[in-house]
Design a protein around this nucleic acid. Sequence first.
DNA 1: CGGTTTGACTTTCTTTGACTTTCGTTTTAT
DNA 2: ATAAAACGAAAGTCAAAGAAAGTCAAACCG
Lengths: 147, 147
Amino acid sequence: MLADSIAKLIEEMLESGGGQLELKRNEMANQLGCVPSQISYVITSRFTPERGYIIESRRGGGGCIRIIRKQMHKNEYLMHFFYAIGDSIEENEAMAYASNLLDGDFITPREFALIRAAVTGITSVPPAAKGMVRADIFRHILLALME
Amino acid sequence: MLADSIAKLIEEMLESGGGQLELKRNEMANQLGCVPSQISYVITSRFTPERGYIIESRRGGGGCIRIIRKQMHKNEYLMHFFYAIGDSIEENEAMAYASNLLDGDFITPREFALIRAAVTGITSVPPAAKGMVRADIFRHILLALME
DNA sequence: CGGTTTGACTTTCTTTGACTTTCGTTTTAT
DNA sequence: ATAAAACGAAAGTCAAAGAAAGTCAAACCG
């Protein structure tokens, strides 16, 4: 469906733009072969404030639409962990961090279990490298939690 | 009887879809030569929540009906993936599995993002070994989801 | 009578296009 | 040279048409 593929495109652009994007309505509509108001429809029906998006726009020559995915202060907290990790981390350290996240209601018990599975599930890596791989994974997970 | 054969068809589709399916009501009715509301009747009379089914739908252009079997049994479904993985898996394969889990409501969007983070976050592993590490992690995660 | 079948009608979501508003630029009048 | 007017290029709005699923009551078997 048209609306869905536009929404997907916008989400991808948001992703690669780190939560922000600017688009030209007419241009986009042209590329997708649809009428410009279709873009408006998708934005107003899918990227609403209730779902955590801020929309700004400017009309006239050189106008555009900006979409911003709101992020909460939670991210600052997560960032704190992100920098604390360093480039290698032991299993128990990682799980201590995860416990903090759970305690602070930043993750659910299931998500906690999932993180433990990921962090302890790297059996096929040489022992010397495990710490680095763990840190890798954990940092990526933190980033995912910030979305 | 009509209702029974529709129910049978849906059950078969559920089976081959690993417990989930998406159908277009009008299309199906057309193929079976019956009125669309007959499909609705079968779904509401046979695939009820009490019998372990989740029904979702969307109206309008491109709309559809999704049926998910949740009772019989989550772990069976997860096991299916567990064995399908093998001892090495590519990123896109892994994410395809994860998408299925998401579609089937076995994981939340956040959990999906978390899995992606784990699966794509193993940058500090020699390319040749990545597949194995990924498979490791993914299997562990599946086990975690089974509780 | 109880479960089926049907079809008319409703609701929801999508698509389109005509018309409006806003903004930057360019032209014109003083 | 400057202020006003005109123009064109966006985006906004809205209503109508279209596409699908939902509802419900009447008719129809068993």
